[in-house]
Design a protein around this nucleic acid. Structure first.
Lengths: 356, 356
DNA sequence: ATCGTTGTCGATAACGTTTTCGAAGGTTAG
DNA sequence: CTAACCTTCGAAAACGTTATCGACAACGAT
């Protein structure tokens, strides 16, 4: 019982009276070891409690079996996504490292760039970028998939959801309730999803023959505190809107809080619809009408896609068996969004709230 | 621009006209390299965009700078803890791997055992066990700290919160509101925290001169679905309790849902107090009275303690400087709990609810 | 001149694996 | 009996680092 030094493949080899090469072969189920030897080595492995060093294997194999997830912060969206990723990782033979930048939103870009570059010669076989800010220019050959990517054209494999349609659904719902003065809290300006939700909003209004009042589309930044600030201004106006579409649930919840604080009842005096369908949005008061986005699914798909991109290690000589070559799955996936109506929206009051 | 093969320390050495030994020295800021050489090598590193291979370093140094967090599932508690851990990890030079067993609660013990054994010869320098089920018998010399550990005596360094006092606080709060028929949904039987919350409950009742009705303490398992089942039975009784103390917020929220479903109003007909103070417990309807447990803090402290246990790598020859030896910090920490009163509890109705 | 001393640097042996490739022995075919 | 093959195995070269330790030069002091 040597508690100090780890038991290595050499120890196993000596105890079994074979070479390390042979031990390695039985470990990897390679062809060319006699049944008797195989059994003996297996027994010694069991007896010594040997576990191969992942580090040494990685060095030799150029593959760590680790996937990195880069999130700016562990807010509800990332958290939910992480669950899906964890589901997908299970049994895949990969591990999950979580890189979180943490509170400081200022140097988000710098932080991402730094990690992206480190990513080159380092721990992970591939990475998932959650709501990334950077264009990830000149990446290092390490496979990457982005979830809800930044705006602008990108060659990076991507998972997102149908934000355009989602934005339309939300807005149409409000319109169908009779609302005409509808405001929007937009999302993080650098993300494509935010842009699309806003276009969805504008299109729906346009289709209904309504002009958008630019002073009614205010920044929310996918963030609770900036949303609260904008909501306060918006709802303090004498000609305040009767409904607001928030670009995500965090913003919507913040809006509800501000409304309550200003003495407005939701949904009687103000309808609010969010976007995301976080678990907490069903719990809050009132339960939030929102656009469902299959976040866990997105995390799951992202991992699956990434693993596909990483590919199998060369099957080598294990008695023939040509590599299956499963290439060719699509490199962009957009998942469906749908409206879920709960209690934060209601028909516009017949008596207009003091507007003209 | 060779996009294929990574740039290695040898490349840098050649470009700079020095040996790999020298490059390694400048990388690690070792003593004994001339200023001119240092600058030249640094320049080449920059130019080539060289990043040292963490894998090779790990192999050589016997240290991976990775910390593992083992969670059974990514429920709110683990998630919150993870945030604290992520905060603490930042700038520490370590990375965080998350191992999640996932839904399947059946083989929890088997899963833990498996990972614990793998942990021996593997990726991480240390690990954090969140609500572990196993005694982690004969661990491998890898430092480990447990958060909210299993019952029974344990030598493992531990972080938890004062569940005993928390249980008492919750119960005393209900008592002070005039409740006499108080039920409890217990937690996961294998966890010390669950046991202590129950003792706190019993002690408080005892101190108030009330006998505990054993049919009122029912299993909740820290789990929403088993709690819901127990709550349904409990609240269907003709002599149902007027208040219930749930061992965690998940159970409390489930109880509220069941109550609503049975036509009981919370808090008018039934008071509910939880335990954890999850973020969502402030959002739900009604906002939950609960015992606050500083979960993020616990995650933070766990990482700090673990890093302390791992210790600095030998400082070697970087020009003297004896190792500081920061040993001796306590190996068990119990954080304070406190009651936060919100809207799910109220005074017991003066007219008894049809009981004798 | 000679002898330490000091300052720089590089060859090299690890770290724990996996894979190649050739050697040794056994079997079968001619 | 020889040639060809197949099976089983081990020696050794990688993989990309870091630490040791000796070589070598320059220099001041005797």
């Amino acid at each position: 019982m040597p508690p100090a030094s780890r038991v290595t493949i050499r120890d196993v080899a000596e105890h079994a009276g074979v070479s390390v090469a042979t031990v390695s072969k039985v470990l990897n189920e390679r062809y060319g070891v006699a049944a008797a030897t195989y059994a003996r080595v297996r027994a010694v492995i069991e007896e010594l409690g040997y576990e191969a060093s992942l580090v040494a294997q990685s060095l030799r194999n150029h593959r760590t079996n680790v996937i990195g997830v880069l999130v700016a912060d562990l807010e509800p969206f990332s958290t939910e996504l992480l669950k899906g990723a964890a589901d997908a990782i299970r049994g895949s033979g990969f591990e999950l490292v979580v890189y979180s930048a943490g509170g400081r939103t200022g140097d988000r870009e710098g932080w991402e760039r730094r990690y992206l570059s480190r990513l080159s010669g380092t721990l992970v076989d591939g990475a998932i970028l959650v709501t990334p800010a950077v264009a990830h220019a000149g990446l290092t050959g390490t496979p990457v998939v982005a979830v809800d990517p930044h705006t602008g054209p990108t060659e990076v494999p991507t998972i997102d959801s149908d934000s355009l349609r989602g934005g339309q659904l939300a807005t149409e719902h409000l319109l169908s309730l009779g609302h005409k003065q509808i405001a929007m809290l937009t999302g993080r300006a650098d993300l494509r999803s935010a842009q699309l939700r806003e276009t969805g909003f504008r299109r729906a209004l346009g289709a209904a023959g309504l002009a958008v009042r630019e002073e009614f589309v205010v920044p929310g930044g996918y963030d609770a505190v900036v949303s609260a600030r904008s909501a306060r201004e918006l709802l303090s106006r004498p000609d305040r809107p009767t409904a607001v579409f928030a670009a995500n649930d965090l913003s919507a919840i913040a809006t509800v809080a501000v409304a309550r604080e200003l003495g407005l009842r939701v949904p009687e005096d103000l309808s609010v619809v969010g976007f995301d369908n976080l678990p907490e949005s069903a719990l809050c008061t009132p339960p939030l009408t929102t656009v469902d986005q299959p976040i866990r699914q997105m995390g799951y798909r992202a991992i699956v896609m990434l693993i596909g991109l990483i590919g199998d290690p060369e099957p080598h000589d294990r008695r023939g068996r040509p590599a299956p070559v499963v290439q060719g799955q699509p490199t962009h996936q957009t998942l469906d969004t749908k409206l879920v109506v709960r209690a934060s929206t209601a028909a516009v009051p017949t008596t207009l709230p003091s507007a003209s």
